[in-house]
């Protein structure tokens, strides 16, 4: 049973990942889904990172684009739990507790 959500005061801080976050690539290879608990407020988070497709595609005339190269290194994930954490500035684009962490891509 995962720990209950903790309504901690809003604070932007970098933390080590908690638990074993899962990084799954979509079937067509165009985005990654990172799931795991927030190391600060313990909310389960789902974070998606899509491959940017803006700009003309180089290297072909016809046919479908090839699958993008796999992401290397780690993906920075930030909390988007949606709970009203106290002290969060109203102008902040954050929707979580402010914590962020790196999840290595396998």
């Amino acid at each position: 049973m995962p720990p209950a959500h903790d309504l901690t005061p809003f604070r932007e801080q970098e933390l080590a990942p908690a638990g074993n976050p899962a990084v799954v690539r979509s079937a067509d290879g165009r985005w990654y889904t990172v799931t795991g608990p927030c190391p600060n407020c313990h909310a389960n988070s789902v974070f998606r990172v899509a491959y940017g497709v803006l700009g003309p595609y180089k290297g072909r005339w016809l046919g479908r684009r090839s699958e993008p190269e796999p992401h290397s290194g780690s993906i920075l994930v930030y909390c988007q739990c949606g709970f009203p954490h106290p002290d969060r500035p109203s102008e902040s684009p954050d929707t979580g507790c402010g914590a962020f962490w790196d999840v290595p891509v396998p």
Binding site: E12, Q13, E14, L76, V77, Y78, F100
Partner: peptide
């Protein structure tokens, strides 16, 4: 804490 990385995320 490197907030710039978070901003770009």
């Amino acid at each position: 804490t490197d907030l710039t990385r978070k901003r770009f995320a």
